[in-house]
Design a protein around this nucleic acid. Structure first.
Length: 493
RNA sequence: CGGGGUGUAGCGUAGCCCGGUAUCGCGCCACAUUUGGGAUGUGGAGGUCGUAGGUUCGAAUCCUGCCACCCCGACCA
């Protein structure tokens, strides 16, 4: 591994790509647009999954699994849905290969053509609603609250590790309800679950909002979202929660008998977050030395690096190190002891910085003598000497981890605050977008035409209409027409 | 899918214009000395030059197709 990461200030994209690879998170695969998620990266994803899964279950959802393949005909049942996804679907047309007659390898067997092609799911609404038709007959079957952890495929033109890959991992929740109000409440609830997860675990402040009609999910009546701001001033949609109305119920004939004896279409929601969250996590906190991970999602929170000459010294240090590890683990802190003699301490320091381990403890003969530890924190890159007798080590480290978790959240929060600008004229809009980027809070006349025009001229889109939007009279920054509140614009990933 | 760029050892590269079998650094292996911020020395291994064709006595180098990656558009979580 060569030294030195590219600088964020010089080439943000290059910095991001290099960081993902060098920190052992992921790498490109032989298939265009697909990635291999490496063990270190995957263990961060597993932490995210575990936490989200717990939150889904706490809110009454159960996991299930639906198939990867969807009959082609299903895609055409919901008109706007097919329009949204048709252009990026992988299609299975054959089910068999055979040896080429010229011995050049295997070819697709032309005789093994499928009667009806199969679509590799870009999302599972269609297959799930076709199943729900059989599961739902009565109001007694509702609400139906299901989540699945799965992979999906969207054949995107341009891909980037974690942020947009052809295949990605995600969860998709699909719920069915008796009333519109209940489905809307579910949509809001899940957006709030996402927001809470992002802020509490990823240390990522997000704006909760509603998508404009242009940005709404294909097949939804309403899309709620959480939007985050990255260090380069671009916005990233971190999660979406859709109110599907009765669109899919109608498309797949999902009706239920009401308590009163009527027959009605059910109301639906769907909501998802993906491995894109990994991209958000990386871009939100990391620096030119590498990854900075929030303690709550770090594969291990503490690493202990022994400093020693010779086996005997290592043996002495290891006794103390193991004692510290036991204390930390008892307190629920994950810790790794790196006593490899194949790398030198300086190399390890740099390595764990690159990998974003929140706290590093160095322990050497000097420490044994003075009853101290060198404790370094990743977020601030500061070091302190800690006296064993001052307070229990687990208490010290536990406090520090909490400080780091809060510290990086606050830093990201302050960054977003500094990079959210109220603009009141078109000139100002263009100027701020050009010079500073970030979120632009501006009045908008509420029409898709204006939004399209602004996108065309500046590449900025409406990220969301914040849920905490203040109602105030104003004029649209572009058209000059009346507006009743500000929305957030930004260039987005 | 349109415009631009790049593919040479695990990684980063020189060589390409002007054709003669590949340079350097990091990493890797062995040994020794080292170990509190990416060690040093000595020796060593590692290449169908992205891929498939073509031109030529001879191709990393010239020509054509294809593939992948990066940047900029359109599309998108």
């Amino acid at each position: 591994m060569s030294k030195g990461l590219p600088k964020r200030s010089e080439d943000y994209s290059l910095w991001y790509n290099e960081l993902v690879k060098r920190a052992d998170l992921a790498e490109n695969s032989p298939v265009r647009g697909c990635m291999v998620i490496k063990p270190y990266g995957y263990s961060i994803w597993e932490k995210m999954q575990a936490e989200l899964d717990r939150m889904f279950k706490e809110t009454g959802h159960s996991n299930a699994y639906f198939p990867l393949f969807i009959p082609k005909s299903f895609l055409s049942k919901e008109a706007s849905h097919v329009e949204g996804f048709a252009k990026e679907c992988a299609v299975v047309t054959h089910y068999r290969l055979k040896n080429a007659e010229d011995g050049s390898g295997v070819i697709v067997d032309p005789e093994a053509k499928l009667e009806e092609e199969l679509i590799v799911r870009p999302t599972s609404e269609t297959v799930i609603w076709s199943t729900y038709k059989n599961w739902i007959q009565s109001y007694r079957d509702l609400p139906l609250l299901v989540n699945q952890w799965a992979n999906v495929v969207r054949w995107e033109m341009r891909t980037r590790l974690f942020l947009r890959t052809t295949e990605f991992l995600w969860q998709e929740g699909h719920t069915a309800h008796a009333t519109s109000e209940e489905a809307m409440a579910e949509t809001v609830q899940m957006m709030n679950v996402y927001a809470q997860f992002a802020e509490e675990f990823m240390a990522l402040p997000v704006v909760r909002g509603r998508k404009s009609a242009n940005e709404r999910f294909a097949g939804a009546d309403d899309t709620l979202c959480i939007e985050a701001l990255m260090q380069d001033g671009k916005a990233l949609q971190a999660g979406t929660s859709h109110f599907l109305g009765q669109n899919f119920a109608k498309a797949f004939e999902v009706k239920f008998a009401t308590k009163e004896g009527g027959l009605e279409y059910v109301w639906g929601t769907s909501w998802g977050v993906s491995t894109r969250l990994m991209g958000a996590l990386i871009m939100a906190h990391s620096d030119d030395n590498g990854l900075v991970l929030p303690p709550k999602l770090a594969p291990f929170q503490v690493v202990i690096v022994p400093i020693y000459r010779g086996e005997d010294e290592l043996a002495l240090i290891s006794v103390k190190a193991k004692e510290i590890m036991a204390d930390l683990r008892k307190a629920g802190i994950s810790v790794k002891y790196d006593d490899r003699d194949t790398q030198k301490p300086g190399w390890k320091f740099a390595e764990y910085e690159l990998k974003g381990v929140p706290v590093r403890i160095a322990l050497g003969p000097r420490d044994l003598e003075n009853k101290t530890l060198e404790i370094a924190r990743r977020d601030t890159l500061t070091k302190e000497s800690f006296q064993w007798e001052d307070m229990p080590i687990a208490e010290k480290i536990g406090g520090l981890l909490e400080e780091i978790q809060n510290g990086i959240y606050q830093k990201a929060f302050d960054f977003r605050k500094e990079n959210t600008t109220e603009v009141n004229s078109w000139e100002e809009f263009k100027q701020v977008l050009e010079d500073k980027a970030g979120f632009l809070s501006a009045h908008w006349d509420g029409t898709p035409e204006t939004e399209d025009k602004i996108k065309e001229l500046t590449k900025a889109t409406i990220r969301c209409i914040p849920l905490d939007q203040v109602l105030e009279q104003g004029v649209c920054v572009f058209s000059g027409k009346p507006s009743s509140g500000r929305v957030l614009f930004a260039k987005a990933y």
